[in-house]
Amino acid sequence: MSKIAVKVDDLTVAYNYKPVLWDIDLEIPEGVLMAIVGPNGAGKSTLIKSILGILKPIAGSVSIYGKPYDKQRPLVAYVPQKGSVDWDFPTTALDVVMMGTYGSLGWIKRPGQKEKKAALEALEKVGMLAFKGRQISQLSGGQQQRIFLARALVQNASIYFMDEPFQGVDASTEIAIINILKSLRKAGKTVIVVHHDLQTVPEYFDWVTFLNVKKIATGPVRDIFNDDNLTKTYGINYKVSIQE
Protein backbone atom coordinates (compact mmCIF):
# COMPACT_ATOMS: atom_id res chain seq x y z
CA MET A 1 0.00 0.00 0.00
CA SER A 2 1.33 3.41 -0.94
CA LYS A 3 1.57 6.39 1.38
CA ILE A 4 -1.55 8.17 2.57
CA ALA A 5 -1.65 11.69 1.14
CA VAL A 6 -4.77 12.93 2.88
CA LYS A 7 -6.32 11.52 6.00
CA VAL A 8 -9.64 12.70 7.42
CA ASP A 9 -10.76 11.52 10.86
CA ASP A 10 -14.27 11.83 12.29
CA LEU A 11 -14.88 15.07 10.41
CA THR A 12 -18.22 16.75 11.13
CA VAL A 13 -19.12 20.11 9.61
CA ALA A 14 -22.30 22.07 10.25
CA TYR A 15 -23.90 25.23 8.89
CA ASN A 16 -26.06 26.85 11.54
CA TYR A 17 -26.03 23.68 13.64
CA LYS A 18 -27.25 21.56 10.75
CA PRO A 19 -24.63 18.96 9.89
CA VAL A 20 -23.66 18.91 6.21
CA LEU A 21 -20.90 16.37 6.73
CA TRP A 22 -21.29 13.74 9.38
CA ASP A 23 -18.44 11.78 10.89
CA ILE A 24 -16.33 11.38 7.77
CA ASP A 25 -13.36 9.05 7.84
CA LEU A 26 -11.35 9.05 4.66
CA GLU A 27 -7.92 8.00 3.52
CA ILE A 28 -6.70 9.11 0.12
CA PRO A 29 -3.61 7.24 -1.07
CA GLU A 30 -0.82 9.11 -2.76
CA GLY A 31 -0.88 9.19 -6.55
CA VAL A 32 -4.58 8.61 -7.22
CA LEU A 33 -6.87 10.61 -9.46
CA MET A 34 -10.00 10.61 -7.34
CA ALA A 35 -13.54 11.77 -8.00
CA ILE A 36 -15.82 12.83 -5.17
CA VAL A 37 -19.38 12.14 -6.30
CA GLY A 38 -22.73 12.65 -4.65
CA PRO A 39 -26.02 14.49 -5.13
CA ASN A 40 -26.44 18.26 -4.70
CA GLY A 41 -26.07 19.23 -1.07
CA ALA A 42 -24.09 16.09 -0.30
CA GLY A 43 -21.25 18.20 1.09
CA LYS A 44 -18.69 17.60 -1.67
CA SER A 45 -17.40 21.17 -1.78
CA THR A 46 -17.70 21.40 1.98
CA LEU A 47 -15.43 18.37 2.35
CA ILE A 48 -12.72 19.98 0.24
CA LYS A 49 -13.08 23.34 1.97
CA SER A 50 -12.85 21.70 5.38
CA ILE A 51 -9.73 19.79 4.41
CA LEU A 52 -8.19 23.09 3.28
CA GLY A 53 -9.13 24.91 6.47
CA ILE A 54 -11.45 27.32 4.66
CA LEU A 55 -14.36 26.04 6.77
CA LYS A 56 -14.01 25.18 10.42
CA PRO A 57 -15.31 21.72 11.32
CA ILE A 58 -17.13 21.26 14.62
CA ALA A 59 -15.36 17.96 15.16
CA GLY A 60 -12.64 15.82 13.68
CA SER A 61 -9.24 16.41 12.17
CA VAL A 62 -7.44 16.42 8.84
CA SER A 63 -3.87 15.61 8.06
CA ILE A 64 -1.81 16.03 4.91
CA TYR A 65 1.05 13.52 4.83
CA GLY A 66 0.65 13.06 8.55
CA LYS A 67 0.70 16.73 9.55
CA PRO A 68 -1.98 19.42 9.94
CA TYR A 69 -2.81 21.41 6.83
CA ASP A 70 -1.31 24.63 8.27
CA LYS A 71 2.11 23.02 8.22
CA GLN A 72 1.70 21.56 4.74
CA ARG A 73 0.27 24.44 2.70
CA PRO A 74 3.05 24.38 0.06
CA LEU A 75 2.11 20.79 -0.77
CA VAL A 76 -1.48 21.63 -1.63
CA ALA A 77 -3.12 23.51 -4.50
CA TYR A 78 -6.80 24.38 -4.70
CA VAL A 79 -9.06 25.20 -7.64
CA PRO A 80 -12.33 26.69 -6.35
CA GLN A 81 -15.57 26.58 -8.31
CA LYS A 82 -15.40 28.94 -11.24
CA GLY A 83 -18.60 30.63 -10.12
CA SER A 84 -17.15 31.52 -6.73
CA VAL A 85 -15.29 34.58 -8.02
CA ASP A 86 -16.24 37.79 -9.79
CA TRP A 87 -14.85 37.52 -13.32
CA ASP A 88 -15.38 41.25 -13.83
CA PHE A 89 -12.55 41.86 -11.39
CA PRO A 90 -10.03 44.24 -13.01
CA THR A 91 -7.18 41.87 -13.73
CA THR A 92 -5.60 39.81 -16.49
CA ALA A 93 -5.20 36.09 -17.07
CA LEU A 94 -1.50 36.24 -16.26
CA ASP A 95 -2.17 38.10 -13.03
CA VAL A 96 -4.69 35.48 -11.88
CA VAL A 97 -2.17 32.72 -12.53
CA MET A 98 0.47 34.69 -10.63
CA MET A 99 -1.81 34.54 -7.59
CA GLY A 100 -0.91 30.87 -7.37
CA THR A 101 2.62 31.91 -6.41
CA TYR A 102 1.49 34.12 -3.52
CA GLY A 103 1.42 31.21 -1.08
CA SER A 104 5.12 30.49 -1.48
CA LEU A 105 5.91 34.19 -1.13
CA GLY A 106 4.09 34.60 2.16
CA TRP A 107 2.90 37.93 3.53
CA ILE A 108 4.15 41.28 2.16
CA LYS A 109 6.74 39.96 -0.34
CA ARG A 110 5.82 40.80 -3.94
CA PRO A 111 6.05 38.43 -6.90
CA GLY A 112 9.03 39.04 -9.19
CA GLN A 113 10.50 37.71 -12.42
CA LYS A 114 10.76 34.14 -11.15
CA GLU A 115 7.06 34.04 -10.31
CA LYS A 116 6.17 35.60 -13.64
CA LYS A 117 8.18 33.01 -15.51
CA ALA A 118 6.48 30.19 -13.60
CA ALA A 119 3.08 31.70 -14.37
CA LEU A 120 3.87 31.96 -18.08
CA GLU A 121 4.96 28.31 -18.13
CA ALA A 122 1.73 27.26 -16.45
CA LEU A 123 -0.26 29.27 -19.00
CA GLU A 124 1.58 27.49 -21.76
CA LYS A 125 0.76 24.08 -20.24
CA VAL A 126 -2.96 24.81 -20.37
CA GLY A 127 -2.70 26.30 -23.86
CA MET A 128 -3.54 29.82 -22.76
CA LEU A 129 -0.27 31.66 -23.32
CA ALA A 130 -1.77 33.70 -26.14
CA PHE A 131 -4.35 35.08 -23.71
CA LYS A 132 -1.99 36.20 -20.96
CA GLY A 133 -2.87 39.89 -21.24
CA ARG A 134 -6.59 39.36 -21.74
CA GLN A 135 -8.94 40.77 -19.13
CA ILE A 136 -10.53 37.79 -17.42
CA SER A 137 -14.12 38.75 -18.24
CA GLN A 138 -13.19 38.54 -21.92
CA LEU A 139 -12.43 34.82 -21.61
CA SER A 140 -14.90 32.05 -22.34
CA GLY A 141 -16.01 29.73 -19.55
CA GLY A 142 -13.61 27.03 -20.67
CA GLN A 143 -10.73 29.48 -20.85
CA GLN A 144 -11.51 30.76 -17.37
CA GLN A 145 -11.37 27.21 -16.07
CA ARG A 146 -7.99 26.69 -17.78
CA ILE A 147 -6.71 29.85 -16.10
CA PHE A 148 -7.79 28.44 -12.74
CA LEU A 149 -6.05 25.19 -13.54
CA ALA A 150 -2.87 27.08 -14.52
CA ARG A 151 -3.04 28.92 -11.22
CA ALA A 152 -3.02 25.59 -9.40
CA LEU A 153 -0.22 24.20 -11.59
CA VAL A 154 2.01 27.15 -10.80
CA GLN A 155 1.92 26.16 -7.15
CA ASN A 156 3.79 23.00 -8.09
CA ALA A 157 2.02 21.12 -5.32
CA SER A 158 1.82 17.42 -4.47
CA ILE A 159 -1.93 17.35 -3.91
CA TYR A 160 -4.50 19.14 -6.06
CA PHE A 161 -8.07 19.78 -4.94
CA MET A 162 -10.49 20.84 -7.66
CA ASP A 163 -14.09 21.87 -7.20
CA GLU A 164 -16.04 20.98 -10.34
CA PRO A 165 -13.39 21.84 -12.94
CA PHE A 166 -15.60 20.57 -15.76
CA GLN A 167 -18.55 22.78 -14.96
CA GLY A 168 -19.64 24.83 -17.95
CA VAL A 169 -16.70 23.97 -20.19
CA ASP A 170 -16.88 22.73 -23.76
CA ALA A 171 -15.86 19.24 -24.78
CA SER A 172 -12.40 20.19 -26.02
CA THR A 173 -11.55 21.99 -22.77
CA GLU A 174 -12.81 19.04 -20.77
CA ILE A 175 -10.44 16.76 -22.67
CA ALA A 176 -7.57 19.22 -22.27
CA ILE A 177 -8.19 19.45 -18.52
CA ILE A 178 -8.49 15.71 -17.95
CA ASN A 179 -5.28 15.15 -19.90
CA ILE A 180 -3.46 17.57 -17.63
CA LEU A 181 -4.93 15.86 -14.57
CA LYS A 182 -3.82 12.48 -15.89
CA SER A 183 -0.31 13.79 -16.50
CA LEU A 184 -0.26 15.09 -12.92
CA ARG A 185 -1.12 11.62 -11.70
CA LYS A 186 1.58 10.17 -13.91
CA ALA A 187 4.02 12.52 -12.22
CA GLY A 188 3.04 10.98 -8.88
CA LYS A 189 0.71 13.77 -7.75
CA THR A 190 -2.57 13.18 -5.97
CA VAL A 191 -5.60 14.81 -7.60
CA ILE A 192 -9.00 15.09 -5.92
CA VAL A 193 -11.89 16.34 -8.02
CA VAL A 194 -15.48 17.13 -7.12
CA HIS A 195 -17.26 15.65 -10.09
CA HIS A 196 -20.82 15.63 -11.37
CA ASP A 197 -20.88 13.58 -14.52
CA LEU A 198 -21.18 9.96 -13.40
CA GLN A 199 -20.83 8.67 -16.97
CA THR A 200 -17.23 9.80 -17.19
CA VAL A 201 -16.06 8.55 -13.79
CA PRO A 202 -14.68 5.18 -15.01
CA GLU A 203 -12.98 6.84 -17.96
CA TYR A 204 -11.34 9.72 -16.10
CA PHE A 205 -10.64 8.48 -12.60
CA ASP A 206 -9.00 5.51 -10.91
CA TRP A 207 -10.31 6.23 -7.42
CA VAL A 208 -13.72 7.37 -6.23
CA THR A 209 -15.45 8.50 -3.05
CA PHE A 210 -19.21 8.36 -2.73
CA LEU A 211 -20.50 11.04 -0.43
CA ASN A 212 -23.91 12.02 0.83
CA VAL A 213 -23.50 13.81 4.16
CA LYS A 214 -21.91 10.57 5.29
CA LYS A 215 -19.23 8.72 3.42
CA ILE A 216 -20.83 5.87 1.51
CA ALA A 217 -17.75 4.24 0.03
CA THR A 218 -14.22 4.99 -1.11
CA GLY A 219 -11.80 2.95 -3.15
CA PRO A 220 -10.66 1.99 -6.65
CA VAL A 221 -13.20 2.76 -9.35
CA ARG A 222 -13.07 -0.78 -10.77
CA ASP A 223 -13.98 -2.27 -7.38
CA ILE A 224 -16.61 0.05 -5.96
CA PHE A 225 -18.14 2.05 -8.82
CA ASN A 226 -21.28 -0.04 -9.03
CA ASP A 227 -25.04 0.25 -8.95
CA ASP A 228 -25.17 -0.68 -5.31
CA ASN A 229 -23.05 2.27 -4.16
CA LEU A 230 -24.71 4.62 -6.61
CA THR A 231 -28.12 3.67 -5.26
CA LYS A 232 -26.93 4.14 -1.68
CA THR A 233 -25.56 7.56 -2.56
CA TYR A 234 -28.27 8.94 -4.77
CA GLY A 235 -31.16 7.26 -3.01
CA ILE A 236 -32.87 6.08 -6.16
CA ASN A 237 -32.40 2.92 -8.05
CA TYR A 238 -29.41 3.94 -10.09
CA LYS A 239 -28.14 2.05 -13.08
CA VAL A 240 -25.05 2.92 -15.01
CA SER A 241 -23.47 0.53 -17.36
CA ILE A 242 -19.74 0.60 -17.07
CA GLN A 243 -18.02 0.07 -20.35
CA GLU A 244 -14.99 -2.11 -19.98
Binding site: K49, L52, Y78, S84, M99, G106
Partner: peptide
Amino acid sequence: FDKGLAASLG
Protein backbone atom coordinates in the same frame (compact mmCIF):
# COMPACT_ATOMS: atom_id res chain seq x y z
CA PHE B 1 -10.78 38.36 -6.02
CA ASP B 2 -10.86 34.87 -4.55
CA LYS B 3 -11.49 34.46 -0.83
CA GLY B 4 -11.27 30.67 -1.04
CA LEU B 5 -7.85 30.72 -2.68
CA ALA B 6 -6.59 33.35 -0.23
CA ALA B 7 -7.69 31.18 2.69
CA SER B 8 -6.10 28.04 1.24
CA LEU B 9 -2.82 29.91 0.66
CA GLY B 10 -2.75 31.02 4.28
